[in-house]
Design a protein around this nucleic acid. Structure first.
Lengths: 226, 226
DNA sequence: GATAAAATTTAGACTTGTCTAAAAAATGTT
DNA sequence: AACATTTTTTAGACAAGTCTAAATTTTATC
């Protein structure tokens, strides 16, 4: 299905992307305040923008009830995610950036308008299926192909072994910490223990033992092998 | 010399770039109307923007007298030109775009903010010296290195032979016409005749004879070999 | 050198996206 | 169910960048 050819401002695109990210797989509506916090803006600004985006039929908006993306809105969001992730692959694979350095640049590049550009970039990169953080890249039709089952490390039992398939994108500090302990996509990981009093985990990464807080563990996704 | 780290809007960058392009090698001041025409906007809008850019010390502006870029302003302009041309090389060399297809996309990409990105891109491309239209690419210090002498075809005498070193960037129609007659950078070209009544030229391109209007010939630059 | 024409600036207005402060609706608590 | 709290919306304002129309300055012409 072709994506719609609306002209959206960067600001509009950022709202759509944020709503999509907050929605996840559920189709509950997103509240004004939640979105305001995500966008680092005020609720009143969000209300104004929601009215505009509803006018453009990218989402449905009911006063005091938050919003939900329409089919069109979701397609726009997926298109932006696709661009963001392909550019991240370009930056890491071709320009030798670290995975902790690419987010901000990709936030700019994701707004470049040219379907041809992004399709040729995808081909140039060899049709990658995931970005440098392990997040899946939707294809031209907006479908996420064969996503392998991933579990958050924090939801796994003691004794679980697995391969690191993904980490949360976003904060350079977090990714730099992973660099420091040499955790990468593909690393072998085992949960050696869980400390009940604070929920932190003792883990073994490629043979090296370290400790993760629950919060940190929640940002790491593995494919269990046992 | 490091380029300044101002935050400029896309609009401000576009004005700076246009003023730089209109200035050429001379340092005459650029008139409000000329700039308005170039930017496809109104003179009153230009006046407002010139005041703002003068405030930021990117140009000097005297009422009713037009403007001139400052050293800083010129550096900003050169940085934008550098980005534009490197992205054009990327699009043509790596993503297989035609030289007639890249201008518009590069107009967007040139506003991406990241010195590291553009320096790594330059390295990835093998430090190209010219863009796909033969225009020189300034280095990190903002210098245009060893520009070979180029003459506009329209300024050459009958009998001149040369190599096509550059063509004017901008209009896809013009570049598509050059594709049709198979004129490329590096083509051998000879001026067989000049028709005095309309100023048009009879030229031989890689052995094929064709005719150029004076206006068209002015947009083609050669390095004379005889 | 006066005057007409052209170029340029000013004044006031509009749009986009944001803000603060106040009003209105929804939610939670007893 | 009534009241308090939280969430959300409205109203009015502001900055950026643009516009039109009117005023001003420069330039060209007689």
């Amino acid at each position: 299905m072709p994506r719609s050819q609306y002209h959206l401002t960067q600001s509009e695109e950022n709202y759509i992307k944020a709503i999509f990210a907050l929605s996840g797989s559920s189709d509950d509506s997103i509240s004004t305040n939640l979105l305001a916090e995500r966008m680092s803006t005020k609720a009143s600004s969000v209300t104004d923008m929601l009215k505009k985006l509803a006018e453009k039929e990218l989402l449905t908006y009911t006063k005091y009830q938050g919003c939900t993306l329409t089919e069109t809105g979701r397609n726009v969001a997926i298109s932006i995610v696709r661009k963001h992730r392909l550019w991240e692959v370009f930056l890491v694979d071709k320009l030798q950036f670290g995975w902790d350095e690419v987010h901000e640049i990709a936030e700019q590049l994701e707004h470049i308008q040219s379907a041809q550009l992004i399709n040729r970039l995808e081909e140039f990169l060899g049709f990658p299926k995931v970005d440098p953080h392990g997040d899946p890249i939707p294809n031209r039709e907006g479908k996420f192909e064969n996503i392998p089952a991933r579990s958050s490390l924090s939801s796994c039992e003691i004794g679980t072994k697995g391969i690191v398939m993904g980490v949360e994108d976003g904060s350079p500090e977090f990714l730099q910490y992973l660099n420091r302990i040499e955790l990468k996509l593909g690393s072998e990981i085992e949960i050696a223990d869980k400390l009940s009093f604070d929920g932190s985990l003792v883990v073994i990464i490629d043979g090296r033992t370290t400790q993760f807080s629950h919060l940190l563990a929640a940002k790491i996704f593995i494919q269990p092998t046992s």
